Amino acid sequence: MTTTIHERRTAKRQAKGLTFNPSRPVWKEPASPLYNAIKAVIIGGITLSIVLPILLVVSTSIADDDQLIAAGGFVLWPTHPTFAAYQAIFSGEFMFRALGVSAFITAVGTFLALFVTITMAYATSRPVMFGRPVLLLVLFTLLFAPGLIPMFLMVKQLGLLNSVWSLILPGTFAAFNFVVMRSFFMNIPVELIEAARIDGASDFMILRKIVLPLSKAVIAVVGLFYAVSFWNAFFNAMLYINDQTLYPVQLVLRNYVVQGGSMAEAIGVTSAPPPQSMQMAIVVIALLPILLVYPFLQKHFNKGVITGAIKG
């Protein structure tokens, strides 16, 4: 009797001592030890490529002078940790003010950006007359950016120069985030919207009572995208802000890396630790808030990041 390919594979797996469940397809059977080992090596390599730079930054920020000099400027594991760099940074009020400015820009900017994106995405996801022209205009901005000089002239004409609103208003809408959220809204069953409309609910009530509770995942993901964008932005501050009391923390980091000692004097640090420790300490301070927020949004991130990829 001629054996099938499936039977020959089954005999080979049984000869190797591998379990086989005939009620499941072959592709759902447990992977081989070699495959698991290769996968573990790849995942381990990716993990090290992420963890080692963070460990290097944190270790360098708390290393003492002698170890920094002996290591050539960067330390992987400090033998005598010291927090002199952090004490020097927070010895004056400059860094506290910069953190406050960044927190205000991130909080207000993320709220306004989510409000604009959600309302526009919901409006264009419904069959309305002006939905398609607005959608075409938004998609047009994905292909053609306004440019640096026109944006600067617009901010100047609006009287926003040297104001924190120049760092918020130009970034309150991102076409990519709009497309992601609109795609999610379009996948919400139409029957729910029609049932609420028959009961007399307005569009605002439908959005608040039905659409938003069903869209927590995509709102968390888009909100995280906006928050990271506002928190990490420094180029607009470099263009529009001249008052050092309005500097966000990312611009402080950039200026310290570029200017070094002169920037240390500007932020009120008299007896500064080594430049490497100061730079890495500012990097840790700028990175820490995002690392603290992300774990609370991770459960929504896995679901919301693939929004629109699966239909039905």
Results as ranks from 00 to 15, higher is better:
2 T>F: 10
3 T>P: 06
5 I>A: 14
7 E>H: 02
10 T>F: 10
10 T>G: 11
10 T>S: 13
13 R>F: 06
18 L>Q: 13
18 L>A: 13
23 S>M: 13
29 E>F: 01
29 E>K: 02
33 P>K: 03
34 L>F: 14
35 Y>L: 15
37 A>Y: 13
41 V>L: 15
41 V>Q: 15
42 I>E: 07
43 I>S: 09
43 I>C: 13
44 G>A: 09
44 G>Q: 06
44 G>Y: 03
45 G>W: 03
47 T>E: 12
48 L>Q: 08
53 P>K: 00
53 P>E: 01
56 L>R: 14
59 S>W: 03
61 S>P: 09
61 S>V: 10
62 I>V: 13
64 D>F: 00
66 D>I: 03
66 D>V: 05
69 I>E: 15
76 L>Q: 11
78 P>T: 12
82 T>H: 01
82 T>G: 07
83 F>G: 13
84 A>P: 01
85 A>H: 01
86 Y>I: 10
90 F>M: 02
93 E>M: 12
94 F>K: 08
95 M>C: 14
97 R>M: 13
102 S>H: 04
107 A>C: 07
108 V>Q: 05
108 V>K: 04
109 G>T: 01
110 T>R: 03
114 L>D: 02
117 T>P: 00
119 T>R: 10
120 M>K: 10
121 A>G: 09
121 A>K: 10
127 P>W: 01
129 M>D: 06
134 V>C: 09
134 V>K: 04
135 L>A: 14
136 L>T: 07
137 L>I: 11
139 L>M: 07
139 L>C: 03
139 L>W: 00
139 L>K: 05
149 I>G: 06
149 I>C: 02
149 I>W: 03
152 F>C: 07
155 V>N: 09
155 V>S: 05
157 Q>T: 11
158 L>Y: 00
161 L>I: 09
163 S>H: 04
165 W>H: 09
165 W>E: 14
166 S>V: 03
169 L>Q: 05
170 P>S: 01
177 N>S: 12
180 V>Y: 11
183 S>G: 10
186 M>A: 15
188 I>W: 03
189 P>E: 11
190 V>R: 10
193 I>T: 15
194 E>T: 04
195 A>I: 08
197 R>T: 08
199 D>W: 04
200 G>H: 03
202 S>Y: 04
203 D>N: 08
208 R>F: 12
208 R>T: 11
209 K>M: 03
212 L>D: 13
227 A>K: 05
228 V>H: 15
235 F>I: 13
239 L>V: 07
240 Y>S: 05
241 I>C: 00
242 N>C: 09
245 T>P: 00
250 Q>M: 12
251 L>K: 06
262 S>Q: 15
265 E>W: 00
267 I>N: 00
271 S>I: 11
273 P>I: 02
273 P>N: 05
276 Q>T: 15
276 Q>V: 14
279 Q>R: 15
280 M>L: 05
281 A>I: 10
281 A>D: 08
283 V>W: 05
283 V>C: 09
284 V>F: 06
288 L>H: 07
289 P>S: 05
290 I>L: 08
292 L>F: 12
296 F>C: 08
302 N>T: 15
306 I>W: 08
311 K>M: 02
311 K>A: 03
311 K>I: 02
312 G>T: 06
